[in-house]
Design a protein around this nucleic acid. Structure first.
Lengths: 333, 333
DNA sequence: GCAATCAATGTAAGTGCTTACAATTATTCT
DNA sequence: AGAATAATTGTAAGCACTTACATTGATTGC
């Protein structure tokens, strides 16, 4: 069953069938209707390979993420796929893990699959050393590269980022305004968004005239139990803190567990602000005040931008979206 | 840059180049090395479209799930993609939502994309009414259909399921053995695995000679807060229960929150068993005893089975994997 | 009424690969 | 050495589509 069968049955040439297939306007309404009817009758589906060969596109976008089971990324994937599909594109998923080498390998793989663009979901793709990003720049020479919550400068590279810095600044400022003096900042990684968040924290302290003490900035892996233990050990080493801002809800959830088992009341004795407004913020008890990083808006904007790129429009290479501070039970502002 | 460029530069025919590309053994080591060297030198990548046209396969598998941001499915997607990729296959993701019509539409779409198989992740794809599954059976006439944690009988349809019934049976029996008399079962949906879980619960009660009271079997949507409220309202209507078995961790997490705020001690006064061993079981305080439904094993088996189907092996149409009962703080057995 | 224009359709040459079959070269056997 | 056989390699015909260009037929202007 191919285009010849249709053309024969409809008494037209294959070119006409192809035109109908591609919505070419140079077909009379009568023949178009006839061809469509035959296609329907025969249950004809065009062969995507032959089509791809001719058009050199498969209407498929590669989505790369480090780990689709991460709460944040799982959401991003959902929204990206949804919005791509509503624009008539498929999504090939590629979970790369965290090794630079693997990322590069999968990048090549997606390129060789002739995807029409690659979306990098999450801030884990832009490396510190510029030369480690050359593989992205190289790919951008062929197809558009879209960063969701990451930023890289370059031709044919487009970023949509959340204003993490402003969000953390706001959260920290509010905590300071409501009387907190010893803010502890815990973070998981130093990616693009990670360093922005930290900068927001530092700026808030500076603007409020509070000292910036290195022991109040701590790293911890993204793990509730590990975070809980970290807080206990900080307590043990005598560090006093009346508020915690975490770069991820899992760390904030650890803080809640720490306070609950240590008999510290939330938010009276300890205020906690999480990040990402994930399911963990609702599972924690009390529920976490958390910064919503607007995944859906980020993804929708990314896809819209990409469609703009495809249609040759003049498109901003960077879009910033404001985060939302979701007030729940772990703060009293 | 195509196969002709390579053949010219290597002084061989395109057929030989193609043979090298496809690992055909009928090429002398010398020419193989020469061709590979030229490919490397030219940075040649075969065109997947042309390849697909000839081979009629793209080495791509469609993964369908209702919602990739669901904790369980996010994990499944991760493992499926990983294992497919390690077998040289790409994964096209398709989040269908819960409408039957949408599922059918996306099914057709994936088929028309000429994927080599479709994996249905999660038990939401097999409908109650057999005629609503005909679209799956139709697709199975063309390509293998793999069900992860769902079961449907049919030619070219393969299922990998978790023994949910045995798992719930075991959990309920242990609770009964350790002195519980009033077990409450809460569930979210009546899918294939949903009804198996419930059956396990019923069997455990029956085998222990406990009465099966309908008010002890309740439905609730997959939402921590909704679950918490459900327990409060049950309490209010006077229902007494000393143990809760939930078909999902989110419901169990709701039970924990209920008990914490109602001042009911866990597990002394109330034991709780969750399902899926998700991040919620670690976020809850106390941590949830939960049934691990072995997503990774399920996914790996599914992919292995699929590879078996591709290689024409004789493959079981149904594989069952045992669940694990992970003991944590919400039970004392 | 006839040339000029335009719309609709058809022809045929790609697109880059696979593979059956033919041709060539190398190896073995007598 | 020469025939028979085996191992390589090449030729050419698909695969199912797109599209530039050619052709046909209809419409318009004068």
């Amino acid at each position: 069953m191919n285009i010849y069968d249709v053309s024969k049955k409809a008494n037209v040439s294959i070119a006409t069938v192809s035109r109908v297939l591609n919505g070419n306007p140079n077909v009379s309404d009568k023949t178009r209707a006839k061809v469509l009817a035959v296609m329907e009758q025969l249950g004809y589906t065009p062969n995507v390979f032959a089509r791809g060969l001719g058009l050199n596109t498969m209407r498929t976008i590669g989505i790369m993420c480090s780990d689709s089971s991460d709460l944040y990324l799982a959401n991003a994937i959902y929204y990206l796929e949804r919005d791509l599909r509503s624009n008539g594109y498929d999504a090939i998923l590629c979970c790369t893990g965290y090794e630079l080498e693997t990322k590069q390998k999968y990048f090549d793989l997606l390129c060789s699959k002739r995807v029409d663009a690659i979306i990098l979901a999450g801030s884990k793709f832009v490396e510190m050393k510029p030369r480690d990003n050359t593989y992205i720049l190289d790919a951008a020479a062929k197809i558009p590269i879209m960063l969701v919550n990451g930023y890289l400068e370059g031709e044919n590279i487009y970023s949509t980022v959340c204003d993490d810095q402003a969000a953390v600044y706001q959260a920290a400022s509010r905590l300071i305004q409501s009387g907190h003096k010893k803010l502890l900042y815990v973070y998981t990684s130093t990616s693009y968004s990670g360093s922005n968040k930290l900068q927001g924290f530092k700026n808030a302290l500076a603007d409020a005239g509070l000292p910036l003490l290195p022991e109040y900035i701590r790293q911890c892996r993204k793990d509730i139990t590990a975070a809980k233990e970290l807080f206990f050990s900080l307590k043990k080493e005598g560090l006093e803190f009346d508020a915690v801002i975490a770069s991820d809800d899992s760390l904030a959830a650890g803080a809640v567990k720490y306070a609950n088992t240590a008999g510290i009341s939330i938010p009276e004795e300890l205020s906690i602000v999480g990040y990402n407004n994930s399911i963990l913020s609702l599972c924690s008890d009390p529920e976490l005040t958390s910064i919503d990083s607007k995944v859906e808006a980020l993804c929708t904007t990314t896809v819209n931008t990409l469609m703009g790129v495809f249609s040759g429009g003049n498109v901003p290479s960077r879009t910033t979206i404001a985060a939302d501070l979701i007030k729940r039970e772990t703060t009293n502002f």
